[in-house]
Design a protein around this nucleic acid. Sequence first.
RNA 1: CGGGGAGUGGCGCAGUCUGGUAGCGCACUCGGCUGGGGGCCGAGCGGUCGCAGGUUCAAAUCCUGUCUCCCCGACCA
Length: 562
Amino acid sequence: MTRFSQSFIPTLKDAPGDAEALSHKLMVRAGLIRQVGAGLWSYLPAGWRVERKVEGIIREEMEAIGAQEMLMPVLQPSEAWEKTGRHSIDELFKLEDRKGTSMVLAMTNEECVTQHVAREVRSYRDLPLMLFQIQTKERDEPRPRAGVLRTREFTMKDAYSFDRDEEGLARSYELQTGAYERIFDRCGLRWYRVESDVGMMGGSAAHEYMAPCPGGENEVALATGYAANLEIASAVAQPVELPAALEAVEKVSTPGLATIEEVSNHLDLPAAALIKALPVLVEGRGMAIVLIRGDHRLNEIKLRNALGADFRQARPEEIETEIGPVGFIGPVGAKVPVIKDAAIIGDSFVAGGNEPDIHLRGVRPGRDFQFEEMDVRTVEAGDTTPGGGTIEIEPAIEVGNIFKLGTRYSEPLGATFLDDSGTERAIVMGSYGIGPARISAAAIEQGADECGIVWPRSIAPWQVHLVSLAKAGEDARAAADSLYDELQDAGVEVLYDERDAGPGEKLTDAELLGCPLRIVVGRRGLAEGVVEASERSSGSEHKLPVEKAAVRAQALLQRGDG
RNA sequence: CGGGGAGUGGCGCAGUCUGGUAGCGCACUCGGCUGGGGGCCGAGCGGUCGCAGGUUCAAAUCCUGUCUCCCCGACCA
């Protein structure tokens, strides 16, 4: 029962001036959402319908793999978060109740759900177990942005698997993977499953589900048979032609030339023929130099993972005292450990000479300096995969992620069971998240055209957008009224625009709102005995005989996408 | 946290440099016309110019402080 004139669907001709992302503009313009504060949004009735559609699909697919829905509080005591070491995360909202008890607002629910399971599960007979909820999450984001894409409060489906061992976890992970594929397919998204960093969740393996679209804030490296988040992507670099090898390194005078660009111009060599030396301070180990090919960029996440330790860039004064003049740092003769990126291949590079205004040429790794090799550079478009594919890089929205947590949470929280030999063991866990709001935003970004949103049928707020061009009292209006009733009786979700407004306004709003099928009832069509249906996604138009309109409309919907 | 931008009626904006009693378009209300792509005519309603303090005869405008929002980066399940 949705009559536009009585509904709270405040559409806008102009997007707010501060909106950038397409999904942000369209969601506001179509009257789906309104802002409350930075990263805080209300869902208006039409937007909420979409959100619930997405949640419904997620719920069905979770239940189909045997996951059981439950609900945990957003507000939780800090204690468990202290036990798992996650209380120190900056994004975690912390507060105190009136008694001074330290509380947090949950950003995910590993602590809470693991405690429940720890208290109740004793035996291997109680496992495996899969639980999920669709609940508000809170994160003190350093920088909320792009409408609903990165917010401080949002709804997330979070699921957790509990298994006896790694094999069990692998099975649960597979089940979730299958469910995720069905969910994103059913929501009409184009998506990739990519390998990802485990990040603050901890754990042994992780994948992300990425929906490619212009507004995406992640970057995905793609090639035939390969897909990875750029944060961890690995590939073979494009080769570089180096100058002829030398018997020994030679000093070159490079007065005042401290950047790759300056040196490469001065020596008339490509940047890739130079070695960039990045002094870092590794936690617990001290100063080291990381070597990257001149045209490459360091990937801090890969370095952190390769080191197995945190690090930071060394400060100029630290570099001066431990290595040499900033801008002329190199591996040859350096008195600190050297980490060489795997893409530095060859025997005649230019590198800093560790003395003012001096670079070295003919530098050959292994002969002129010792090193430890690691893959720590950021992959670039045009690189190749071991399988021979060429890497492309695309922006994407992360719509879901899955983690093999192992015993990261069960150990500190004492979630154990007795196995069939009577031995106490830690439960092996996985965690699986999906952001419904990101699904709808991604669907908008992927499908929209210049007129507005084009919803996949499965998550459209209504199936039919019925427009009456006539005023109350006219024959054409009576025909629209009865078509509305017929469609409703047939169980079709229909938004009926019977506002006393101009035709342009109503048709434009219908396109903005993006429901799959628009049906226009007006005098012109009625004179021929028809109403006009148009499919939002293809734009194709159909004249439907008035008396069969409801049935024919349903047939068109069946035939359409989703 | 670093850099940049912006707060003036519901929305989009001008006015700020050069101080002088706040304006435009859309929306909204009323009346009329119109009725297949945001139409036309007329009459209206609506604003502590983010907030606080200061300078001045006088502050949207100048000064100081502060809050909020947006963008880029850092960060980010």
